[in-house]
Deep mutational scan, measured.
Amino acid sequence: EEEEKKKEEIARLLGVSKEDVERILKKNNLDIEQLLRRVQREN
C-alpha cells in the first residue's frame, strides 16, 4: 500500500521505526504527505 511505503520512507530518512512514524503522525495530527515533504526538505 502506498501509505505504508511512505511511512517506511519517512522512518528510513529519520532513522526511526515505522511505529515511531505513526506516533509522530498521531501526536502532531499531520497527514503522511505533509510529514514526508517536511522530512525530504530537511534531508
Score class of each variant (00 low, 15 high):
residue 3 E to D: 14
residue 23 R to A: 14
residue 35 L to F: 05
residue 30 L to I: 13
residue 13 L to C: 05
residue 39 V to I: 14
residue 12 R to W: 07
residue 37 R to N: 13
residue 32 I to Y: 06
residue 7 K to I: 14
residue 7 K to D: 01
residue 6 K to W: 10
residue 38 R to H: 15
residue 12 R to T: 07
residue 25 L to D: 00
residue 36 L to F: 04
residue 24 I to L: 10
residue 28 N to Q: 12
residue 43 N to D: 10
residue 19 E to V: 09
residue 18 K to N: 06
residue 16 V to R: 04
residue 29 N to E: 07
residue 40 Q to T: 12
residue 23 R to F: 08
residue 30 L to R: 03
residue 33 E to K: 03
residue 8 E to G: 09
residue 34 Q to F: 04
residue 6 K to H: 07
residue 39 V to E: 03
residue 31 D to L: 05
residue 13 L to H: 08
residue 4 E to I: 08
residue 12 R to Y: 08
residue 11 A to D: 00
residue 16 V to N: 03
residue 27 K to T: 13
residue 27 K to H: 12
residue 29 N to M: 07
residue 6 K to R: 08
residue 17 S to G: 07
residue 38 R to Q: 15
residue 43 N to P: 09
residue 25 L to A: 09
residue 13 L to D: 01
residue 15 G to T: 01
residue 5 K to T: 10
residue 37 R to P: 03
residue 17 S to T: 14
residue 33 E to R: 02
residue 16 V to Y: 03
residue 40 Q to K: 10
residue 37 R to W: 01
residue 29 N to Y: 06
residue 38 R to W: 15
residue 34 Q to Y: 04
residue 36 L to P: 01
residue 4 E to H: 07
residue 14 L to C: 09
residue 32 I to V: 14
residue 31 D to M: 05
residue 33 E to D: 15
residue 28 N to A: 12
residue 7 K to L: 12
residue 22 E to R: 02
residue 28 N to K: 10
residue 4 E to A: 09
residue 2 E to W: 11
residue 7 K to M: 11
residue 6 K to A: 10
residue 14 L to E: 00
residue 11 A to C: 08
residue 43 N to S: 14
residue 35 L to M: 06
residue 12 R to H: 10
residue 25 L to K: 01
residue 8 E to Q: 12
residue 11 A to H: 01
residue 34 Q to V: 08
residue 42 E to N: 12
residue 6 K to I: 14
residue 17 S to I: 03
residue 20 D to W: 13
residue 13 L to M: 11
residue 43 N to H: 15
residue 35 L to S: 01
residue 21 V to T: 01
residue 7 K to Q: 03
residue 39 V to W: 01
residue 7 K to G: 01
residue 38 R to M: 15
residue 6 K to P: 02
residue 31 D to G: 10
residue 7 K to V: 09
residue 37 R to G: 13
residue 32 I to F: 04
residue 25 L to R: 02
residue 13 L to P: 00
residue 23 R to I: 12
residue 28 N to D: 14
residue 20 D to A: 13
residue 7 K to F: 08
residue 30 L to K: 02
residue 38 R to N: 14
residue 38 R to A: 15
residue 12 R to D: 06
residue 36 L to R: 05
residue 22 E to C: 06
residue 16 V to I: 14
residue 28 N to G: 11
residue 11 A to N: 00
residue 12 R to M: 10
residue 36 L to I: 07
residue 15 G to F: 02
residue 15 G to D: 05
residue 36 L to W: 06
residue 20 D to H: 11
residue 34 Q to I: 07
residue 21 V to H: 00
residue 29 N to F: 07
residue 1 E to D: 13
residue 30 L to F: 08
residue 42 E to W: 02
residue 14 L to R: 01
residue 31 D to P: 04
residue 2 E to L: 11
residue 25 L to N: 00
residue 1 E to H: 12
residue 10 I to Q: 00
residue 42 E to K: 09
residue 3 E to S: 11
residue 20 D to L: 09
residue 1 E to S: 13
residue 4 E to G: 07
residue 4 E to W: 06
residue 42 E to H: 12
residue 40 Q to A: 10
residue 37 R to D: 15
residue 6 K to N: 07
residue 42 E to T: 10
residue 13 L to S: 04
residue 9 E to K: 10
residue 23 R to V: 12
residue 11 A to P: 00
residue 43 N to L: 15
residue 38 R to V: 15
residue 1 E to L: 14
residue 35 L to K: 00
residue 9 E to H: 10
residue 35 L to T: 02
residue 43 N to G: 12
residue 1 E to Y: 13
residue 28 N to R: 09
residue 34 Q to M: 07
residue 32 I to T: 09
residue 35 L to D: 01
residue 8 E to V: 11
residue 42 E to P: 08
residue 27 K to N: 14
residue 2 E to C: 08
residue 31 D to A: 07
residue 41 R to F: 09
residue 34 Q to H: 09
residue 12 R to F: 09
residue 28 N to C: 14
residue 11 A to Q: 03
residue 19 E to W: 05
residue 7 K to C: 05
residue 33 E to P: 01
residue 3 E to K: 11
residue 8 E to I: 12
residue 22 E to K: 03
residue 9 E to S: 07
residue 39 V to D: 02
residue 14 L to I: 07
residue 5 K to S: 11
residue 5 K to W: 13
residue 17 S to L: 06
residue 32 I to W: 04
residue 31 D to C: 06
residue 13 L to T: 03
residue 8 E to A: 12
residue 24 I to G: 01
residue 1 E to T: 13
residue 28 N to V: 10
residue 12 R to S: 08
residue 14 L to V: 02
residue 16 V to K: 05
residue 27 K to C: 10
residue 31 D to S: 15
residue 17 S to K: 08
residue 7 K to R: 07
residue 34 Q to P: 02
residue 35 L to N: 01
residue 43 N to Y: 07
residue 18 K to C: 09
residue 40 Q to N: 07
residue 6 K to F: 08
residue 39 V to K: 02
residue 30 L to A: 04
residue 41 R to W: 07
residue 1 E to F: 13
residue 20 D to T: 14
residue 34 Q to L: 05
residue 14 L to T: 02
residue 1 E to V: 13
residue 18 K to I: 14
residue 25 L to Y: 01
residue 29 N to T: 05
residue 33 E to S: 04
residue 22 E to H: 04
residue 16 V to P: 00
residue 10 I to M: 04
residue 25 L to T: 02
residue 31 D to H: 06
residue 6 K to S: 06
residue 7 K to H: 03
residue 18 K to L: 14
residue 12 R to Q: 08
residue 26 K to P: 00
residue 24 I to W: 08
residue 43 N to R: 14
residue 37 R to F: 01
residue 27 K to D: 15
residue 3 E to I: 15
residue 17 S to H: 06
residue 4 E to Y: 06
residue 27 K to F: 11
residue 6 K to T: 08
residue 26 K to A: 13
residue 22 E to A: 05
residue 19 E to H: 08
residue 13 L to K: 05
residue 15 G to A: 04
residue 37 R to C: 10
residue 29 N to S: 09
residue 21 V to S: 00
residue 32 I to Q: 01
residue 1 E to W: 13
residue 43 N to Q: 14
residue 40 Q to L: 10
residue 24 I to P: 00
residue 11 A to V: 03
residue 22 E to D: 13
residue 27 K to G: 10
residue 3 E to P: 07
residue 32 I to C: 06
residue 38 R to T: 15
residue 11 A to F: 00
residue 23 R to Y: 09
residue 43 N to A: 14
residue 13 L to V: 05
residue 2 E to G: 11
residue 18 K to T: 12
residue 1 E to A: 13
residue 24 I to V: 05
residue 12 R to K: 12
residue 27 K to E: 15
residue 17 S to F: 04
residue 39 V to H: 04
residue 33 E to Q: 03
residue 35 L to E: 03
residue 43 N to E: 12
residue 10 I to A: 10
residue 2 E to F: 08
residue 28 N to P: 03
residue 37 R to S: 11
